[in-house]
Amino acid sequence: MKREYSLAHLTVLGCAPPEMIYIASLTGYDYVSIRPIYMGLPGEPNYDLANNKEMYKLTKTALKETGIKVNDIELARIFDGMDVKKYEPAFEVAAELGAKGMISSVWTPNREYATEKFIELCDLAKQYNLDVNLEFVTWADLSTLKEAKEFLKTVNRENVGIMIDTLHFNRSRVNLEELDNIPKEWFNFAHICDGPAEIPTNKEGLIHTGRDERLYVGEGAIDIASIINRMPEDVVLSIELPHIQRVKDFGYTEHARRCIETAKKYFGEHPRA
């Protein structure tokens, strides 16, 4: 089975969705993973398609002209004081653009509250035929595969999934065998990138690599093949690989091309058993 690849938002952070789609088409991707939910982070562009009609129109045109599809949107965070309904315009856009699902993560230590809001999120997403894929992030309040599995079992909704990011998987020190105990239907797509052998011991160090300096697949020390090959064959591989210096050196298009070329080379050398 031919692996399918998606170009993730953080890999080409400075590119609006239309430009991102054309870059994905030029460099050999099948999908894009966009961020129409504005998070207000320092230096983050606002790609809120629901409130930017011209950008939305250009995004639809780019999808039609290239044949690229939208795999997922991000990021429907769970945090204290949130209003799940505020995500609905982005869900509507996602459905109109043909997205399969979204990414969510938990940023509150109050597990009962997080469960309540996640259930509300899943029920709202279901109205738009979207799956809600929970990502455990090394520096978030839900940071391990075990926690994610227990959380989703409590949530008990049909449209849930677990989204594995190979960097967070490695840095949370998850055992490979834990993947064998996850329901196969929970695996819809995965984020892939590589990273150095040394795992930072503080939050700042974890964030720096995660947002600014991930490595091309096969360039670092993460056993990516052993992680991905434990998932179903049809899992989409979304390359989330921000690297500020390389973007400065090569530009976004060349960086995106190197991302997918190194990934294809790596998986060609590490086929499924």
Rank of each mutant, 00 (worst) to 15 (best):
M1A: 05
R3C: 00
R3D: 04
C15Y: 06
C15K: 12
P18G: 03
I21F: 02
I21M: 07
S33F: 11
E44Q: 15
N46I: 09
N51D: 04
N52F: 08
K53N: 09
T66R: 14
T66N: 12
G67I: 14
F79A: 03
G81C: 14
G81A: 14
P89N: 13
P89Q: 14
F91A: 13
A95E: 15
G98Q: 13
K100P: 00
G101P: 12
S105G: 13
S105M: 10
T108G: 02
P109D: 14
N110A: 07
E120R: 12
E120D: 12
L121H: 04
C122Y: 09
D123E: 15
K126Y: 10
Q127L: 14
L134F: 04
E135I: 03
V137R: 01
V137T: 08
T138H: 08
T138F: 04
L142V: 08
T144F: 05
L145R: 08
L145E: 05
K153E: 15
T154L: 10
T154G: 00
V155H: 08
N156M: 01
N156C: 01
E158V: 03
I164C: 03
F169A: 05
F169Q: 06
L176K: 02
I182S: 06
K184W: 03
N188G: 15
C193L: 04
D194P: 04
G195C: 12
A197G: 12
E204H: 04
G205N: 09
I207T: 08
G210K: 10
G210Y: 07
R214T: 09
R214C: 12
Y216D: 09
A221L: 07
I222C: 11
I222Q: 12
N229V: 07
R230N: 11
M231W: 12
S238C: 10
E240K: 15
K248S: 11
K248L: 13
D249K: 11
Y252V: 05
E254P: 01
A263W: 07
K265Y: 04
